[in-house]
């Protein structure tokens, strides 16, 4: 598996995908739907799949001495590594924004979602949706990238819409607080569970699908 992940990151992942991790800096933008950063990071991973298709990456991977199931696992794990790197950056910038910049006027008067644990929870939900909808959809054919990505985009903006709406609802203002609370932590743990469960579940389904695909 170590070799497969090396192959994924060294051969199948373009520089652009790594550069798109810089969209985690959107965490700092006031008055803007900062969850779009998670979308752009997902878009970076999508680029790897699109280029991988042009490069016939799946054919190359299957010819290597690995099982077809491991090819799928390698794809999921490399996406998870990139997402966790993006998430770590988002978490770092969230911490900086919460700890050192919370008093800034632009953040105090921020009408949009603040960078807090709820924001990080939604970042994970967007990544979970990407893994389940896009990567899972890709492995229906191991070729088509357009349709699963469009479905993911719709779901992604639905998630962003929900996240940006919730804290405006009566009694839900706590969701946008710029400090930690137990409720924030519970929601964040829930998002971690959704991310890990959905990604694992999607990986198993994709492995079973890929076994039956003719290359």
């Amino acid at each position: 598996m170590k070799n497969l992940i090396y192959k994924e990151l060294r051969l199948a992942t373009p520089l652009l995908t790594f550069l798109f991790l810089a969209f985690s800096l959107m965490t700092f933008i006031p008055g803007y739907p900062i969850l779009c950063g998670a979308f752009f990071m997902s878009f970076g991973i999508f680029q790897a799949y699109q280029l991988g298709r042009e490069d016939n990456d799946i054919l190359y991977s299957v010819l290597l001495p690995v099982s077809k199931r491991d090819v799928v696992k390698g794809k999921y794990l490399s996406a998870v590594i990139l997402q966790l790197a993006g998430f770590a950056l988002c978490a770092l910038f969230t911490l900086i924004r919460m700890r050192f910049m919370a008093d800034a006027t632009v953040y105090e008067n921020n009408f949009m979602m603040n960078a807090n644990l709820i924001y990080l929870a939604f970042v994970l939900l967007i990544f979970a949706a990407f893994n389940h909808i896009f990567i899972g959809g890709f492995f229906k054919s191991a070729y088509a990238v357009g349709k699963p990505f469009v479905i993911f985009v719709v779901m992604n903006f639905l998630i962003i819409g929900i996240a940006e709406t919730l804290h405006h609802l009566p009694g839900m203002g706590w969701m946008n607080a710029q400090d930690f609370s137990l409720r924030h932590i519970i929601i964040f743990i829930g998002a971690v569970l959704v991310y890990s469960t959905l990604t694992t579940f999607s990986c198993i389904i994709s492995q079973n699908r890929f076994e039956k695909i003719d290359l």
Binding site: R10, L11, D55, N56, D57, L59, Y60
Partner: peptide
Amino acid sequence: IDYYKKKKISKL
């Protein structure tokens, strides 16, 4: 060889 046609052979 029908994959990674634009990558250097040494890297492949």
